[in-house]
């Protein structure tokens, strides 16, 4: 299997007054194509920073990040935006849907930025909505949908451009148990269909869904285990 993500010696340093704080302090990570990875860690661990770097929302201060074999750590903001548009699909805890747009329009949004025609956008968006079984809610506004349905729209938006990675940041944090199960099933289905998924969560039972669990603490990866067989892959500590 080919590497989708290869991170080597990544540090993210912030200047706070006269002190330099390392949000990430030397991270090495490889994620293969088709893997389902849960990224865990307490708040302030550097988990969000790692997520931002993986999602091309931020750049490492030091180190290398190869996405699909291409070095992306030195790219410009616009180049990163294009990578986010074509390679990465985001799902967030608070759905992040545009309230004035219908489900279909929300899902079609990445395709707008990719410059696709209205017809192609609609086809892509409908296809993605079908995958989350919400094609019958295409013309509904987010306010007319339940939390679980909104998150399904967000997932449809994340997969519309057929990205190489789906990044989900606490996707079930705002959902009831029933919706949580539904959403996790969708992620499992996407994984079964071959998608690479990185799931950020602090709930151990959600992390159990993933086949691999990575624990971030004090800006470092402190645990990297396979869930299915519970055998330790790497154990730094």
């Amino acid at each position: 299997m080919s590497n989708v993500v290869t991170i080597t010696g990544v540090k993210k340093l912030y200047k706070m007054g006269s002190e330099i704080v390392a949000a990430l302090n030397g991270v090495d990570l490889k994620i293969d194509s088709g893997e389902f990875v849960a990224l865990m860690g307490p708040s302030g661990s550097g988990k969000s920073t790692l997520m931002n770097i993986l999602g091309c929302l931020d750049r490492p201060t030091v180190g290398s990040y190869k996405l699909l074999g291409k070095e992306v750590s030195g790219l410009s903001d616009d180049e990163l935006a294009i990578i986010r548009n074509k390679t990465i699909g985001f799902v967030f805890q608070n759905f992040n849907l545009l309230p004035k747009l219908t489900s279909l329009e929300n899902v079609a949004l990445p395709a707008v930025y990719a410059g696709l025609s209205s017809k192609d956008r609609k086809a892509l968006a409908l296809d993605a909505l079908k995958k989350v079984s919400l094609d019958d809610r295409a013309e509904h506004l987010p306010s007319e949908l339940s939390g679980g349905q909104r998150q399904r729209v967000a997932i449809a938006r994340a997969i519309a451009m057929k990205p190489s990675i789906i990044m989900a940041d606490e996707p079930t944090g705002n959902l009831d148990t029933k919706s949580t199960l539904e959403i996790m099933q969708i992620f499992r289905d996407l994984h079964a269909a071959g998608s690479t998924i990185i799931l950020v969560t602090h709930e151990p039972d959600i992390a159990q869904t993933a086949e691999r669990q990575i624990l971030v603490k004090d800006g470092k990866i402190t645990k990297d285990i396979l869930t299915a067989h519970t055998d330790e892959k790497i154990d730094i500590i």
């Binding site: 999602g55 935006a81 986010r84 990465i88 992040n96 949004l109 930025y113």
Partner: peptide
Amino acid sequence: RKEIAIMKYVGATDWF
């Protein structure tokens, strides 16, 4: 601002 953040996530370039 929220809309702008969302636009950024889904890959809108700065100029867009």
